[in-house]
Amino acid sequence: MRYGMVIDQQKCVGCAGCVFACKAENHTPPEINWCDKIITSSGQFPDVRFEYLSTMCNHCDDAPCVKGCPTQAMHKGEGGLTLHEQEKCIGCKACMENCPYGVISFNWQRPHQEWQENKGLAAGTFTPSVMLAEAGGEGSPLSNPERGGSYPLMRSRGTVEKCNFCDHRLKVGLNPVCVDACPSNARVVGDLDDPNSEVSMLIRKYDGKPLKPELGTGSKVFYIRRYTPENR
């Protein structure tokens, strides 16, 4: 079993639904996106192009971040996933240096600390801490306890974090949340080892390519077709 993903660029409409679903699922602070994007604008008026490329951890078979991590915090897990163990992370940033895709983020600040503030805008408004107390939740009202079962909801300052393919959801047979949230069904997750899985078939049919294949990292997120229509 080797989990992989296919992203159909023609179906993708660049809405970032995946980004927000990921934030909601994984309780990432505002300035950290596990699921993120590369945006490119090119051309000159009026021949302009704009492309949106959804990115996340590529869960490389030969993951440079795993090799570089001194403490095995970054490690390979079941199904070929590249996982991160918060508790072992010492914040050396070796994984960030080694990741050729720029998809690992560092908690420079203590995440979600804005919810500790107890100042409101007026006498009758909420304050962050009152909202947190009234709504509930660990660290912020948006923290998802389902995620908290296998990864701390409140990450420590001075540690890294990144996409882990929603390993907690895969474990119970659910798709990563970005896959379910995509309105265009542009994302498919499945077993790359199974030649009959949808991902394998799509990669074959459309000659899917991962990012920076020349590096030989064995990254497992494949892209098919074009964001911009062919006859542009």
Binding site: C15, A16, G17, V19, F20, A21, K23, A24, W115, E117, G120, L121, G124, T125, F126, T127, P128, V130, M131, L132, A135, S140, P141, L142, D180, A181, P183, S184, N185
Partner: peptide, 22 residues
Amino acid sequence: TASCPRQYLALQELYDPDRVRT
């Protein structure tokens, strides 16, 4: 089940710490 990105912002609207309380 298709959607759009702005639906998610509703979650942050709901838990907006600046909401009127009384």
